[in-house]
C-alpha cells in the first residue's frame, strides 16, 4: 500500500513539476509571477481535444499540437499582457495575468460550455501493469513519469550545453549584463515562455487523459498548486521545483491513501504547505535568501 501510494505520488508529482517548471523559469528570467500559467495548461488540453476530435490526430500528434498551441499562447500572453507593463509595479503584471486567466477561462466556457466532458477517444486502451503483488501502475501514469523524466533531461541538456540555454541562465542572473553580451532579452523571454507553456500543456493533456475529464477551469487549481510548488522549492530554482513538485505529489497521494475523511481536502494540502513554508522558510528549500523590500 505504501509503495503503491508512493508510486502514484511520483506520477502526480511529475505533473506538478511539469507545470511548475515554467513558472519558476519565468520568475527566474523576469521576476514575474505568471498567474495565467494555469490557463495555458487548459489551453493545451482544449487544443489536444480539438486536434483529436476535428483534425483526426492521433494521441501523440495531438500532444505535440497542444504543446505548440500552448507555446504560441504563452508567448502571446507575454507579448501583450506582460511586456507593455515591464517597468511598472509588479502588482500590475500580476493583475494583468489574473485578467488573462479569467478572460480565457470565460472564453472556453462560452465556446465549449462549462460542463465537464470526457477525453476524446484516442483508440488507446488504459492497461494496468502489475509490478508486484500489491503494486501496479496504469500505462497513463507510467507515461506521465516517462514524459516528465524525458522533459527534464532535455531541459537540462538545453540549459547546460546550448548557446540559447546558457543565455537564458545568464539573463536570469543578470538581465542587463546579458543584453550587454548581445543577448536579445526579449527573445530569451519568449523562448522561456514557450518552453514553460509547452511543459504545462503536455502535463495538462496527460492529466486530462488520466482523469478522463476536460473542463474550462481545469487549469486553475493545478496552476495555484504549481505556485505552492515553486514557493516550496524556492522561486527561480529548477532543482527546487522538481523536489517541491515530487514532495507535493507524494504528500497528496499519501494523504489520499491514509487520511481518508480528513478535515482538509486533498487539494488544500498544497496551500497548507505554502502557508507553513511562508512562515518557516520564505525563501523555499533551494531559494536564494529573499531580499527584504
Amino acid at each position: 500500500m505504501l509503495a503503491q501510494q508512493l508510486l502514484n505520488g511520483v506520477a502526480l508529482g511529475f505533473t506538478y513539476v511539469l507545470i511548475a517548471i515554467g513558472l519558476t523559469m519565468i520568475y527566474g528570467v523576469l521576476k514575474l509571477l505568471h498567474f495565467a500559467h494555469g490557463v495555458i495548461y487548459a489551453v493545451g488540453v482544449f487544443a489536444a481535444m480539438i486536434g483529436i476530435l476535428y483534425l483526426n490526430m492521433n494521441f501523440i500528434v495531438a500532444c505535440l499540437f497542444a504543446m505548440i498551441i500552448a507555446a504560441i499562447c504563452g508567448v502571446a500572453v507575454e507579448r501583450f499582457a506582460y511586456r507593455p507593463l515591464r517597468n511598472v509595479h509588479p502588482i500590475t503584471t500580476l493583475i494583468s495575468g489574473v485578467g488573462i486567466a479569467i478572460f480565457l477561462e470565460s472564453l472556453f466556457q462560452v465556446v465549449f460550455s462549462s460542463d465537464p466532458r470526457a477525453f476524446p477517444d484516442t483508440g488507446m486502451k488504459v492497461s494496468v501493469w502489475k509490478i508486484s503483488e500489491s503494486i501496479s501502475i496504469t500505462n497513463v501514469k507510467l507515461t506521465i513519469i516517462v514524459v516528465g523524466l524525458v522533459a527534464l533531461v532535455l531541459l537540462y541538456a538545453f540549459l547546460r550545453w546550448t548557446k540559447m540555454g546558457i543565455a537564458i541562465q545568464a539573463t536570469a542572473q543578470d538581465m542587463r549584463a546579458a543584453s550587454l553580451m548581445g543577448v536579445n532579452v526579449n527573445r530569451v523571454v519568449a523562448i522561456t515562455f514557450m518552453i514553460g507553456s509547452a511543459f504545462a500543456a503536455i502535463a495538462g493533456v496527460l492529466v486530462a487523459y488520466d482523469i478522463n475529464s476536460i473542463y474550462p477551469t481545469m487549469g486553475s487549481v493545478p496552476g495555484l498548486k504549481a505556485f505552492c510548488v515553486v514557493v516550496l522549492g524556492g522561486l527561480g530554482s529548477i532543482p527546487g521545483t522538481i523536489i517541491g513538485g515530487l514532495i507535493l505529489g507524494i504528500v497528496e497521494s499519501l494523504s489520499e491513501g491514509y487520511l481518508n475523511g480528513m478535515i482538509i481536502d486533498k487539494d488544500a494540502i498544497a496551500f497548507v504547505i505554502l502557508i507553513i513554508i511562508l512562515l518557516v522558510k520564505p525563501s523555499g528549500l533551494f531559494g536564494r535568501k529573499v531580499e527584504k523590500v
Partner: peptide, 16 residues
C-alpha cells in the same frame, strides 16, 4: 554571471 562557470561566462562574451 555568478552561477555560470568561467568558461560559460567567456562563451557568453562571444554570443553575437
Amino acid at each position: 554571471f555568478p552561477k555560470l562557470s568561467v568558461m560559460q561566462n567567456l562563451m557568453m562574451g562571444s554570443y553575437t
